[in-house]
Design a protein around this nucleic acid. Structure first.
Lengths: 236, 236
DNA sequence: GTGCACATGATTGTATACAATACCGCCGGA
DNA sequence: TCCGGCGGTATTGTATACAATCATGTGCAC
């Protein structure tokens, strides 16, 4: 393991523009499942709440739509995204393609500094679970994967994983089957162990099976989408 | 090979909002290297050219910044992105991770319809090269990869590849070494052959070596970035 | 001649006003 | 009773005006 404490490159990609505060706040609420998929995000409503003009609200909503967290429907408004079963499958296929390899890279590029951050993060996860803060626990659980991708020092891939994790949060909100969030805890712990020892192959395998566990805990049968809008299918 | 002609899912992800025309036009110009990296895109300038208000121009620039084609600097304006050497390497590492596997999937899901489109595309590439339209040829060359990813029927991954191809265009504009674009032609032809025969493993290998060829045709030595702004490094 | 301070001009960030479009309840006719 | 047209209301799309910030060039002090 390297011991150099290179500064962590936590540059939010392209999200620093106008309405950053708003983007962050909404993003947080969505990740913590306080805003559920399908919720309408009215512009006037948000501009009232945050005391900014609709201009910046629109800007923020646009940013979120590019992260695929909200869906913009022309002349109808912004809604928290509702990934379909098909999209859900795709997201986890993509994660299966990217994350195991990234975990391996992370193990190889592990630093003392990063390990400390990772352990602290794990601690925070446990604390949130213990405190019964389900939303916060879920968000941290997702962010754990993002942390790892950042350690791998591939900001481009990390950006993709960030998007995938975000969508995963929505997917979990829609399709979660069991309520056992405990498996997460152990899986993450085991991953940190492997990463700490620089065991890349182990980390890769652990990540792969961890992702598989998540997918199998989802109910992705071809059900008629939760609440589809015929307009979105039968476009004139 | 399947023969069902399922409708191609060419849904532009989240890019249908305001200023779509503008986004398309600018995107085209960037892909064809008519707008070079570092070029400033003034808001008034664009609003004059396209006869729309600055509101929609800003919206379009924001969209492009989320695609990482342009960089938005607060209070200083929008510029066509200048990927660094490091970012260039990351982009092609990501492509190496995603595209070969995707090519394999494409081979497995090939349809008569898709094959026809692919061949037509190849023809267009040849025509552009023959006509000496270097910019157009380059753009089509990139779009070829996107077509394949769409055939693989993984819209999420296809979206990532689309972004990577876009960045690749900028990278090529900055770091291209040789001027032999002919290799592309043969590589793409070979790929289509493999895809047509449903030879997934071959397609995967061909894509891998094709991407490697592109990278080796780049000059990615650690050079002092083309024209950096000290402000971007020494942030107070 | 060099370096700093300030004023001026240009460009972006934000807010507001108006126009276009879609949603929803009502009403009339079959 | 059900379907289709119609108008009011609400919400989004676009344009414009004003405020804040940054770039540039001049002049003065050293």
């Amino acid at each position: 393991m390297k011991t150099t404490a290179e500064p962590s490159s936590f540059i939010q990609p392209t999200i620093g523009g106008p309405g950053a505060q708003l983007v962050a706040s909404l993003s947080l609420a969505i990740h913590e499942h306080r805003l559920k998929p399908g919720t309408k995000l009215g512009e006037d409503e948000l501009s009232d709440i945050y005391s900014v003009s609709r201009t910046v609200v629109r800007s923020a909503l646009q940013a979120l739509s590019h992260s695929e967290l909200v869906e913009l429907k022309r002349n109808r408004g912004a809604f928290v995204s509702q990934p379909t079963v098909r999209e859900a499958r795709e997201v986890f296929e993509a994660r299966a393609l990217l994350e195991p390899r990234t975990a391996r890279s992370a193990a190889e590029r592990m630093t003392e500094d990063a390990l400390a951050r990772l352990k602290a993060h794990l601690e925070a996860e446990h604390a949130a679970i213990a405190a019964g803060e389900a939303g916060k626990a879920l968000r941290l659980s997702g962010q754990f994967h993002i942390e790892i991708s950042h350690i791998a020092d591939q900001t481009t891939i990390a950006g993709f994983i960030e998007r995938l994790v975000a969508r995963s949060s929505l997917i979990i909100a829609l399709y979660w089957k069991r309520q056992s969030a405990l498996c997460e805890k152990h899986a993450h712990h085991a991953l940190v162990e492997a990463l700490a020892r620089g065991q890349g192959a182990d980390a890769e395998d652990l990540m792969k099976s961890h992702l598989l566990d998540i997918v199998t805990a989802l109910d992705l049968r071809d059900s008629p989408a939760p609440s589809v809008d015929l307009r979105d299918i039968l476009k004139p």
